[in-house]
């Protein structure tokens, strides 16, 4: 039997159905309204003067989650890098290269994407946007460049790439610890330079996230020579 044809298996199916039943029963037992923490969160956001309540939750109230989340992302990058087979994966050229159309298009698009990424970071504090969105656009630009045959620029040594990947997290930790000097707690930004600090962190995070996404792509892409081994 081909391994692509799948035969339904009864026991796992039963388990999944039972799970569905468990979830269903739990959900149907809920009252139709439930505020959770919505009310105090909104009040808190208003008090601290952040217009977007979700941003307030992400960056302020539960900023610790976000710090660890950045750690998760960098960890995943490190993990994938540790699993790469080609030590030079980060500096290689992707097989094939680009035709004239893709090449020209990429060259035209890349600066615009850079601009969009920057914009997303800037609006992040008040509307939808932020480091993840910006980083995603930045990463996409990078991957596009790689796909069209560009390699890592010559000036970027291995050490420099590592710095770019880590700088977001390092600066984030630094900024998180900074309030400790003035008697605050971790991540308790002083109100006077709160905005600047967040912007600094977001900007560098965007850079690191973008670099992470490109690294993830490069580390797992097949090498130029001879494709993947069997």
């Amino acid at each position: 039997m081909s391994e692509h044809r799948h035969r339904t298996r009864l026991l796992p199916l039963t388990a999944a159905m039972l799970m569905l039943g468990v979830i269903g029963r739990a959900i149907l037992a809920l009252p139709t309204t439930g505020d959770g923490l919505a009310v105090p969160m909104r009040a808190g956001a208003e008090a601290s003067g952040i217009p977007n309540v979700i941003t307030a939750v992400l960056l302020d109230f539960r900023g610790y989650d976000t710090l660890l989340e950045i750690a998760v992302l960098m960890l995943a990058t490190v993990a994938v890098l540790s699993l790469r087979e080609d030590p030079a994966a980060l500096s290689r050229r992707i097989a094939g290269g680009a035709g004239p159309v893709l090449g020209t298009l990429t060259r035209a698009l890349a600066p615009i994407m850079l601009l969009v990424a920057g914009h997303l970071v800037l609006v992040g504090s008040s509307g939808p946007g932020g480091a993840f969105q910006g980083g995603a656009v930045l990463g996409a630009a990078g991957i596009l460049l790689m796909l069209s045959g560009y390699a890592r620029p010559a000036w970027a040594s291995r050490r420099a790439v590592r710095w770019v990947l880590a700088v977001g997290l390092i600066v984030f930790i630094g900024v998180a610890l900074y309030p400790l000097l003035s008697g605050g707690t971790l991540l308790q930004y002083p109100p006077e330079n709160r905005k600047d600090l967040i912007l600094l962190v977001e900007a560098l995070l965007t850079l690191s996230i973008g670099a992470s996404l490109v690294s993830l792509f490069l580390a797992s892409a097949s090498s130029t020579e001879g494709g993947g081994r069997r």
Partner: peptide, 10 residues
């Protein structure tokens, strides 16, 4: 299910 707009925490 929150009244007055979605709960931001989820």
């Amino acid at each position: 299910r929150a009244e007055g707009g979605p709960d931001p925490v989820p």
